[in-house]
């Protein structure tokens, strides 16, 4: 599906730290590390899944890429151009290439603007076409996300639409500029399963028909497996495992990924699916933060090694990377 050599987006050593303000004047709060030295490549034409629980930093990653927030260190490169700190014309140019679909379709559409206004807004901002070509473009885009007949939706307002329809409108708004790269941040977490499947299939179609490269941010391994070519599992701001989606989910190597899979209710799918049992029943007490971020909850950890040093990503097989000492040890042995 994708060419290995052509990466559209390169994330190099990106860290993001939030400084929380103290309760009183002058007292500085704790620093919260949302992302710690993340490096990823996303290839042309693939759907890349970023899987993590709440607070893992997955949403922050998406916001950094579209420039809603700035990185603390590291660089993000799109098509060979650094995108951190873009201003003015260069920023506007970048906005045409990278778009985002937000989590909550009830919040991401302006209630005071009609569907036509919302979907055509990017065209207006970037000065594309005149009134009639814009209308045609909006019509076409609405049709491509399954809102037909599109003219019926032109003058409707978000509150008249269902959640699924709203999310389609949000997708249409993101797609109308024909972007190269689209980030969708849990686009279906507010929607019912049957509607989610519709949205998934629209995203798949965008890739298959238009070749749009996508970053799909989700908490669900199942959704990632369905949609993505490759996935990265992220835990408390650190990459745990990166690899081809099917490989990572069917044959996970990191204890955290294994714990995530254990937690998925499996009734009826695999009666005797094996359990990895890599999660401690009770968290370990850890004095210092020097070790692996999953160490406090990891049943497979070596006390002496995992608690002292952070493991780096090491390659297992074809494009499968895991950040775990256990595997390093396995390799050595």
């Amino acid at each position: 599906m994708h060419k290995r050599d052509e990466s559209v987006l390169e994330i190099r050593d990106v860290s993001k730290i939030y400084k929380t303000r103290g309760a009183f004047f002058g007292s500085s709060g704790k620093d919260v590390t949302a992302l710690y030295r993340i490096s990823l490549d996303i290839f042309k034409g693939e759907i890349f899944g970023l899987v993590g629980e709440s607070g893992s930093g997955k949403t922050t990653m998406g916001r950094l890429i579209v420039g809603l927030e700035d990185v603390n260190s590291g660089e993000i490169v799109l098509d060979g151009r650094e995108i951190v700190g873009l201003r003015g014309r260069a920023q506007k140019e970048f906005r045409r290439k990278v778009q985002m679909i937000f989590q909550d379709p009830y919040q991401s559409l302006n209630p005071q603007r009609s569907i036509y206004d919302t979907v055509s807004e990017p065209l207006k901002i970037h000065g594309i076409g005149d009134a009639s070509t814009r209308k045609d473009l909006v019509r076409e885009t609405l049709k491509s996300v399954g809102l037909s007949p599109p003219d019926d939706f032109f003058f409707k307002y978000p509150h008249r639409l269902s959640g699924g329809q709203r999310q389609r409108v949000a997708i249409a708004r993101a797609m109308i500029l024909n972007p190269e790269f689209v980030i969708s941040d849990e686009p279906t977490s507010m929607l019912d399963a049957s509607i989610s499947a519709q949205i998934f299939n629209i995203l798949l179609e965008l890739r298959n028909k238009l070749g749009v490269t996508q970053l799909f941010i989700t908490h669900s391994l199942a959704a990632a497996r369905y949609l993505c070519d490759r996935v990265a599992v992220i835990y408390r701001g650190n990459l745990m495992e990166v690899g081809p989606a099917e490989e990572v989910i069917r044959n996970p190597k990191h204890p955290y990924t294994q714990a995530l899979l254990d937690a998925v209710p499996k009734f009826g799918h695999d009666r005797d699916a094996k359990r990895y049992g890599t999660l401690l029943a009770k968290d370990r007490d850890v004095e210092e933060d020097a070790g692996c971020v999953f160490f406090p909850r990891c049943a497979a950890a070596h006390e002496d090694r995992c608690g002292r040093k952070q493991p780096g990503l090491s390659q297992l097989g074809d494009g499968h990377f895991v950040a775990c000492f256990r595997l390093e040890a396995m390799h050595e042995a």
Partner: peptide, 23 residues
């Protein structure tokens, strides 16, 4: 049936999701 086939899974064969059309 439709509900079951619109849920992605982590096990078994990867098959296409069939969304339920309409509202």
């Amino acid at each position: 049936k439709a509900l079951l086939s619109s849920f992605p899974t982590v096990t078994g064969k990867k098959s296409d999701l069939i969304p339920i059309p309409g509202e």
